[in-house]
Design a protein around this nucleic acid. Sequence first.
DNA 1: ATACGATCTCTAGTGACTAGAGGTTCAAGA
DNA 2: TCTTGAACCTCTAGTCACTAGAGATCGTAT
Lengths: 138, 138
Amino acid sequence: MFSIGELSRRTNVKVPTIRYYEESGLLDAPERTEGNQRRYDAAGLERLSFIKHARDLGFSIEAIAALTELQGHPDRSCAEATDIASAQLADVRAKIKRLYALEKELERISKGCDGEGVTENCYVLASLADHDLCEREH
Amino acid sequence: MFSIGELSRRTNVKVPTIRYYEESGLLDAPERTEGNQRRYDAAGLERLSFIKHARDLGFSIEAIAALTELQGHPDRSCAEATDIASAQLADVRAKIKRLYALEKELERISKGCDGEGVTENCYVLASLADHDLCEREH
DNA sequence: ATACGATCTCTAGTGACTAGAGGTTCAAGA
DNA sequence: TCTTGAACCTCTAGTCACTAGAGATCGTAT
Ligand SMILES: [Zn+2]
Ligand SMILES: [Zn+2]
Ligand SMILES: [Zn+2]
Ligand SMILES: [Zn+2]
């Protein structure tokens, strides 16, 4: 049995965040002391570790709620779990693709001016004003 | 002189977003008709196009405010503009780096299960529960 | 003159937290 | 046993960059 602060230390999840997870239904409400303070057990720790790891991998709270729901039913098909993971992978890939285009464009823009001039002739500002100077869509 | 709807069509920025930009001080308040409707001119169109392009490149509202402020002073040094662009580039690169690590990890996790089994034995769920199965930090 | 789409302001909601106020509880040392 | 002080409690509000909706007014074409 440990306090919310102890749980926080063990999982690297901040205390208000733990309370937020509980409020949003992701984490079961734990037992309380007579003085109304939360007390967690090993199951709570395991659950929060799962949530933290999934969040670190970019899953949304909603997706994690679906995943933990599945975890509670060991005999159910895991097709939904793989679907959620694939969707997350697709999402990450789409983000990378978009960011890669931005990186190339920003490289060009940054290289175009050394910052020694005056705003009137600045290639950075001119590039931002005119998408036609861009080499790709973004 | 054109209406907010016309400006929206020309810039692909939604009407409520234009009003939001005005409210947050990014866009000057335009003239109004007698009936209190906004009427924009070429300068307003140019300004919003600049904002839109910068947003598309991922600059924050705050950064854009600084950039448009610089634009208004043609004789000032453009060092600040290049700094902002470099910071944005660094930010994008950091995001790509993080997402790339996530992509690799999610690929492994996704490949580990075809979704034909049952949640109890699912590699996807097991991977989410245990960071030690991960091959890198993320 | 009438119809009707466009515009107005204002409030509230999104996701995933974070910060702060003001009050209570726990645990350790004297 | 008493006292301190860190940790805990709830509740509200703020973050970012919008988005959605209500209810009222305006502009323009027929
Ligand atoms: Zn420059
Ligand atoms: Zn561009
Ligand atoms: Zn599986
Ligand atoms: Zn991991």
